[in-house]
Design a binder for these strands. Structure first.
Lengths: 218, 218
DNA sequence: TCCCCTAAACTAGCGGTGTAAGTTTTCATT
DNA sequence: AATGAAAACTTACACCGCTAGTTTAGGGGA
């Protein structure tokens, strides 16, 4: 097949299909040939639109990150904005859990990640946090969200309780975790996020100023 | 070469060499043939000792996790024990950063991970936390540590500041992050951990009891 | 309008991957 | 002493990411 009258591929179509395949079958099941086949095309044709497979994955990661909402930093006080952002961030990642290992690992140089960092950092500095502190806070929240989306804690446990009872006395009821996987993970996230924000608020009043100065500038 | 008089391979030697290769060249550079070559052996010989490559990686992950110290839960109050554990956990992971993506992702069914969960969960319950809360706290800390070890926040930034100034106004000084990568990541971890523990301590006094009841049982 | 360069598909193929299958020889057990 | 398992080997398969070279359609300049 020579050059077709209308291009069969576009970057958007490739990224979209790649994300669908990753969601359906996992990161390891995405090969250039399988992706191309899903697009009705031969493997190497992808290289007319992307330089490497990693470039495709970067683009996929960028669209996932792009779904994160940071608008709270423009309108709400910094603790509420952080909370909204963290939950939105988590939702964006858990909506596509199979890409998270790639996304969390790779560089934050992708546009959507930079825009997100910019919004968070800017919002915290505007709220009165010293720049170095703002950096740390953004990073700490990112750690927590990425970790929570990466490996489900509960998923690691298995249904058979006997496996645990013998060697790990306190985990005798751990098999129940498998049943309530999602609620355990979300509960742990909610608890940890609340604790983090509580601790940060205490640090804020201790080192930055009163609650009043935390109002958005508008 | 037939069966040698003394076995050339042992599980321990394989795991040890695999970890060294991963540390040196990254997870992606570990192939069964390269690993075997480093052991003075042909690729498929590994399958006399491990069923799959993933089994090898699981064993590597288990030895890394095994270096985490949870002894604080036996002797210190729960906040100090959590802090010690989190730092030890982080040190164990950052000592072998290349294996972290695999480790953080996979199931927690490996013995060392189970033993760790057992110690943490048991320690928190003994301190008076309700079982469900203890599960959430252990998971939340795990999220935070894994996320912090997984992707360096600072590493994502690049030296050239002009790349940022144009589109991301608040990141104008982000290039400095690259210089202080390690201290930024550690500072973010320290800040986040302190905030988390502060928030958990507040939750403890609010819902569980006074500080007195948090003493270790002994 | 003709020409030509670029774009976007193709086919063929390279070196590498995990692992299955079967072979050979040594060691340990009966 | 015989036997069977263990631990190395070789060969081979299907797949991987990617390169090189080919073919033709489309668009811009003479």
């Amino acid at each position: 097949m020579p050059r077709p009258r209308r291009p069969l591929l576009t970057r958007d179509r490739i990224v979209e299909t790649a994300l669908a395949l990753i969601d359906a079958d996992g990161l390891g099941a995405l090969s250039t040939r399988r992706l191309a086949a899903a697009l009705g095309v031969q493997g190497p044709s992808l290289y007319n639109h992307f330089a490497t497979k990693d470039d495709i994955l970067d683009a996929v990661a960028d669209t996932v990150t792009g779904a994160v909402d940071t608008s709270g930093f423009a309108s709400r006080d910094w603790t509420a904005a952080l909370r909204d952002w963290a939950w939105s961030y988590r939702r964006a990642l858990t909506a596509h859990p199979n890409i998270v290992p790639y996304l969390a690992q790779g560089p934050g140089r992708r546009p959507a990640a930079l825009a997100m960092a910019d919004a968070v950092y800017g919002g915290l500095v505007r709220a009165g946090w010293p720049p170095a502190r703002a950096t740390h806070i953004g990073a700490a929240l990112r750690y927590f969200v990425a970790g929570s989306a990466l490996g489900s804690f509960a998923r690691g446990f298995v249904e058979d309780p006997e496996l645990y009872a013998a060697h790990y006395p306190h985990l005798r009821q751990a098999h129940r975790l498998a049943e309530h996987q999602q609620s355990v993970d979300e509960g742990a996230f909610a608890l940890g996020l609340d604790a983090l924000l509580h601790g940060l608020a205490a640090e804020y009043t201790r080192t930055v100023g009163t609650v009043e100065s935390a109002r958005p500038k508008g």
